[in-house]
């Protein structure tokens, strides 16, 4: 059975994904900001079939604390077969435009904290010569939209980082999975009016579980976002600027 480190484990998508691995009897090390929420997720995964699950509360933007957390994860699980990095925050674009500090904070949450985790994890996986590193990026990184470019740019940087990492680690037999969800109906998007493009997190989790199991390079979820973004990328800039998105 697989050992899985999940960072941002209290996110709805991460939890729904973990349930699939729990059904297979996986062992978990769950990292998130709130101890009580991590406990709720851990209890659920245990009922759903997880062989074991440990929790570790941590503010992920505190980069100095990453090494201790990663040591604890390795100590608890032995080798890490998989890691899923799922934390993030849907930036308030207007607030970011008004504040450098806020923009940097959003970047810390959505990009630099992830890169900080990936650097030692990549080395560890390269040494052990097996495993899967999966990271939740976003379709928002495929093109810079005026309504969400701070978030989009952070995710774009992440996507590019992962693309390079995939190239490097493929020689070691390690899969790097870039997950690009579209609009998902989670607490992250609770304030956004819902339309037909929104997907329940359970559906997205199914796709992520499959992609992590197979080691798929890039997964759009649901699948149609690949074509939506293909289309959007094809729109010439003078027109794109005028789109109300």
């Amino acid at each position: 059975m697989a050992t899985i480190l999940i960072i941002g484990a209290t996110s709805t998508i991460a939890h729904a994904t973990a349930r699939h691995f729990a059904a297979e009897g996986a062992r978990f090390f769950l990292v998130g900001r709130s101890a009580s929420k991590l406990d709720a997720v851990r209890d659920d995964l245990r009922v759903c079939g997880a062989t074991d699950a440990e929790t570790y509360a941590l503010d992920l933007t505190d980069l100095d604390k990453h090494p201790a957390m990663l040591d604890a994860a390795t100590a608890a699980l032995g080798t890490l077969d998989m890691v899923l990095i799922a934390h993030g925050s849907l930036s308030d674009q207007a607030a970011c435009e008004a504040s450098v500090a806020r923009t940097m904070e959003e970047w810390a949450t959505n990009c630099t904290s992830v890169i900080a985790l990936l650097t030692p994890l990549a080395n560890q996986f390269e040494r052990q010569r097996h495993g899967t590193i999966a990271v939740i990026s976003s379709v928002a990184g495929d093109r810079g939209r005026k309504s969400l470019y701070v978030y989009g740019a952070a995710k774009a940087a992440l996507t590019t980082f992962l693309e390079g990492l995939r190239g490097r680690l493929s020689a070691a037999g390690v899969a790097v999975v870039t997950i690009k969800p579209g609009f998902v109906d989670t607490p992250m998007t609770a304030h956004v009016p819902k339309n037909f493009l929104f997907t329940p997190p359970e559906r997205v989790a199914q796709d992520i579980h499959r992609a992590m199991t197979r080691g798929t390079a890039v997964v759009y979820t649901p699948w149609f976002w690949r074509y939506v973004m293909l289309l959007l990328r094809a729109v010439p800039d003078p027109i794109f600027r005028k789109l109300p998105i």
């Binding site: 709805t12 939890h15 709720a40 997720v41 209890d43 659920d44 245990r46 009922v47 759903c48 607490p187």
Partner: peptide, 18 residues
Amino acid sequence: KGLRRFIHFDAETGLLQC
């Protein structure tokens, strides 16, 4: 709908907390 987690199951007695 967000309160959708299991809490504990006792396979001896069949008591489920959710």
